[in-house]
Amino acid sequence: MLNIKNLKASLEDEDKQILKGIDLDIGPGEVHAIMGPNGSGKSTLSYVLSGKGGYVVDGGTATLDGTDLLDMEPEERAAAGLFLAFQYPVEIPGVGNMTFLRTAVNSQRKMRGEEELNAAEFLKLVRAKAIDLKIDAEMLKRPVNVGFSGGEKKRNEILQMAMLEPKMCILDETDSGLDVDAMKLVAEGVNAMRDGKRSFLVITHYQRLLDHIKPDVVHIMAAGKIIKSGGPELALEVENNGYADLLNEVA
């Protein structure tokens, strides 16, 4: 599904390399988790994959189902099936949540040569998914993320994911700022989308989220590289011992 080979990337404005050769292969239906200390490049990886400006790819490749991601505009990557749930979902005053979501869904369908959803079809779909995520109708009417609590913002991300039905979902610290109940709700939303084909890359600081979204593989990232990969037990090890042992081990 997602294949990353020796990916290197720097900040555009500074001569500073953040990703120093990432190798990652996520197969269809797999859930991978990336953990790592602050500043290790986890979020940068998600931004570079989804096409945020301000980064320069210095080398390597990233493909989604064999298609080169790095050559595409963000909207093309989205239409190709990539989705990033933001660590900090952006508030956009004046743009209605529903308008935005419908435009996004239909833009993607158009780019893929599929028929667009009409207003009634869209509304029916979004209402059903919103109920699962305990998102009330009032929230849908408001401007994108404006006045949403931390938990509402994250649930809104999952709602977008559910509506857009991507092949490859990247969740960037989706658990940050969530209380236990909200985290469960978000995890249920994610798990409901696991269908054996859709793949996930879960970036997190805490093992706790991985109790709810069970990963197949856990990677430890440090200083722009993946330094160790393993099973779910690796996350437990980090939880118990911190990163120091792992970092020493590699050094």
């Binding site: 909207e75 933001f86 743009v95 935005f100």
Partner: peptide
Amino acid sequence: DETALFYLTSRGVPK
């Protein structure tokens, strides 16, 4: 706002 622009495009809305 470039951040908002990226948010919208990352959901598939053309720039």
